[in-house]
């Protein structure tokens, strides 16, 4: 077990280095340079060249990469080109906010989708199942952006029930109830496609297991239907569900970008998207390292979770 984990950690480190090389190459290959040196298209070329030189952008890309790695090894993530603030402190401020939003919406997704999926599977092809399916498709198809604005118009502009943006009411302290009020709409918006996707997946996974011989045997033994569903079917159906849930968590974090923009949520998704658009290389790279490490870690945890759920995966 310990050896397995150590092996996986080494794999992870190699993977992380590869990811940074690829992202570094890609962001430099993207057309146009950093917006930071784009004061004016009519600026004299010499002045632009000087600004680029001051940012160290005229060196060959491999050298730039090595310099970045060198600085990183000392814990220096560099400064953002666009706002001049230290990348690490920026991420440190923003990442927890994204985790709060993504985490809440993730938990919300699980709470809603697992019971709904089970319910649907138990009544496969009934009217209720069809309604759940239809709603799921709507949930998957709904543009996050539009849905967010609609909620704001209804609940903030018309009804005045909820604040339209931000994490806290500005300059009134940071209280938990205030946070909750701000969290409701973005969490729902972010959770909607995930709920839809998970519900479909739980339903499919349950149905597949239900058609197995051992389920029929369990029923033949005269077990109570609830026992069959929750003990035999659900447990086995959970294995693929854990996979997709594990894979989805980073996607939810990344997908938070649009939601964060619509609701002015000071999270990292927005930071990442803005940095990519403005070719803010230090910020892009800082976030890459962090997110890649996070994804790799989640995958590791997912694999460990398999072992708990499924004895077949346990290692000798």
């Amino acid at each position: 077990m310990a050896r397995y984990i150590v092996g996986r950690l080494i794999q992870s480190a190699v993977l992380l280095v590869l990811v940074t090389i690829i992202v570094f190459g890609l962001i430099h290959a993207a057309p146009g340079g950093p917006s930071a040196v784009m004061a004016d298209t009519k600026l004299p070329a010499a002045q632009i060249a000087r600004m680029r030189a001051n940012l160290g952008l005229n060196e060959p890309i491999p050298i730039q990469y090595l310099k970045w790695v060198e600085a990183l090894s000392k814990g220096d993530f560099g400064l953002s080109y666009t706002d001049n603030r230290p990348v690490l402190s920026e991420i440190r401020q923003r990442f927890p906010n994204t985790l709060i939003l993504a985490g809440t919406s993730f938990v919300l997704s699980l709470i809603v989708s697992i019971p709904l999926g089970i319910y649907s599977a138990n009544r496969a092809r009934s009217a209720a199942d069809n309604i759940v399916s239809a709603i799921s498709f709507v949930g998957l198809a709904i543009p996050v952006f539009w849905f967010g604005i609609v909620l704001i118009i209804i609940f903030s502009v018309k009804l005045h029930w909820l604040p339209s943006s931000g994490m806290y009411t500005t300059n009134q302290g940071s209280t938990f109830p205030d946070l909750l009020k701000h969290l409701i709409m973005p969490a729902i918006v972010l959770a909607t496609p995930t709920i839809a996707q998970f519900t479909r997946f739980v339903r499919a996974s349950m149905l597949e297991v239900m058609s197995q011989d051992y389920v029929r045997t369990a029923r033949a033994k005269g077990l109570a239907e609830s026992r069959v569903t929750y003990l035999h079917v659900l447990r086995n159906a959970l294995v693929p569900i854990i996979t997709i849930v594990g894979l989805s968590l980073p996607i939810v974090v990344a997908g938070a970008a649009v939601t964060e923009s619509v609701f002015g949520w000071p999270g990292m998704g927005r930071l990442a998207v803005d940095a990519a658009f403005t070719r803010d290389y230090p910020v892009v790279m800082g976030i890459t390292v962090l997110v890649a490490a996070f994804v790799i870690l989640i995958n590791l945890v997912t694999d460990l979770a398999y072992m708990l759920v499924d004895p077949r995966v346990r290692l000798k």
């Binding site: 604005i149 704001i152 118009i153 903030s156 502009v157 005045h160 604040p163 339209s164 943006s165 931000g166 500005t170 300059n171 923009s261 619509v262 609701f263 002015g264 000071p266 927005r270 803005d274």
Partner: peptide, 22 residues
Amino acid sequence: GTVVYKILPDINTQVAQLRTGE
């Protein structure tokens, strides 16, 4: 007494905030 600059990347959200008085 106080000026607050709110960072709201989306113009629609800015307008919604104007409508709600925020």
